[in-house]
């Protein structure tokens, strides 16, 4: 399953709920304010690092760029995709769940 999360983890715990309910081996894509979850050195780092061991964690590149988050600031293991990558992830997974 592809899970998308569009909330800053500092505003709403959508990422936390997703991580609690996502089956190991899921694809997790952070979009919109969700991309604030993957900044190295943030309070979310250990949680996201843990998540990268069980799941594949992606962040949407155009949303990182819009927010001024350079790729060298990302937690290791987080992959960056564009909208075409977003479409591929949605097509390659059997179902999609957006954690709003």
């Amino acid at each position: 399953m592809l899970h998308t999360i569009n909330k800053s983890p500092f505003e709403k715990n959508s990422l936390g709920t997703c991580l609690r309910l996502a089956k190991p081996g899921s694809d997790i894509l952070l979009i919109e304010d969700g991309v604030y979850s993957v900044i190295k050195g943030s309070a979310m780092e250990s949680k996201v690092r843990e998540a990268t061991k069980e799941h594949t964690v992606y962040a949407l590149g155009p949303d990182l760029k819009a927010r001024g988050i350079e790729e060298n600031r990302l937690i290791e293991g987080v992959k960056v995709v564009g909208y075409d990558g977003f479409v591929e992830l949605a097509a390659d997974n059997d179902r999609v769940q957006s954690w709003l």
């Binding site: 919109e32 155009p62 909208y83 977003f86």
Partner: peptide
């Protein structure tokens, strides 16, 4: 941003 994301996703899917 939801409408923008939807629009960008739709365009990418069509492409």
């Amino acid at each position: 941003q939801a409408a923008d994301t939807a629009l960008n996703f739709t365009k990418a899917a069509l492409q």
